[in-house]
Each structure stands twice: as C-alpha cells, then as structure tokens.
C-alpha cells in the first residue's frame, strides 16, 4: 500500500511564512515523486483566492506556486467546505480547481499529516 502524506495549509498567504513553507513541501513532494495531497483549511483557503500579488512586506506571492501544481503532478487539491462557508466564499471564487470536502472525512486516508 502506498503511504501517502497530506499537507494541510491553515495560514493565509501573507503575514507569516507558514503558507509558503507549507506549499514548498507540497512542490518538493511532487518533484521527488513522493505521494502528497494538499488540503487548504481555515484561513489557508485565502491562499486560493484570485488576484493576489506580492505583499507590502516584499514577500513573494504564493499563487504562482499553486498554479504550478499540475506541472509537479499534484493532482489532488482539497478545499475545506466548512472553511469556505465560514468565510462566505464559493468554490468558483478560487483561482485553482479543488475538491471541496469535509476535512474530517479525509484525514484517515493518510499515513502522515504535516500541518502548516
């Protein structure tokens, strides 16, 4: 059985390096052929909104990294339904395609989970 890792991004794209350093783990997993899926939950779903640019602090934007997911063979992007609903967001507001899910139904499928 393939041991799959889930990366959960819970932080927004600006204000800290959490989201960037988490998304980097996703891309590295893809580049190395290690099976990883990614879940955006909590404020992490703000990473998925369209029209983001570099922040005032000179941090690079994270959206180009997300758009590179298909190139890195990251096929499964999960988006938390409760997180969307709590913030009044609809899936069609998101800049990349994802599967809207209940996080609690997904976690047991993974050998390990890394949270950012």
């Amino acid at each position: 059985m393939t041991r799959k890792t889930l990366i959960i991004v819970r932080h927004p794209p600006h204000g800290s390096s959490w989201a960037r350093e988490g998304i980097e783990v996703v891309l590295v997993g893809g580049a190395l052929g290690v099976p990883v899926d990614v879940l955006f939950d909590g404020d992490g779903i703000f990473c998925l909104l369209q029209g983001q640019e570099a922040g005032a602090l000179g941090q690079k934007g994270t959206l180009p990294m997300l758009k590179a997911f298909p190139m890195y063979d990251i096929d499964t992007v999960l988006v938390s339904r409760p997180a969307l609903e709590a913030r009044g967001l609809k899936a069609d507001a998101l800049a990349i395609d994802g599967d809207v899910v209940e996080p609690r139904d997904c976690l047991a499928h993974y050998h390990s989970i890394l949270t950012f």
Partner: peptide
C-alpha cells in the same frame, strides 16, 4: 532538503 522530511515521514510509523 525538505524532501527528506517527506521520506522520513513515509518510513516512520508515526510523525
């Protein structure tokens, strides 16, 4: 590299 985190996690029983 951070890839070693994923490899270590895959080969461990618990992370």
């Amino acid at each position: 590299g951070v890839g070693q985190l994923l490899v270590a996690s895959q080969h461990s029983d618990r992370t």
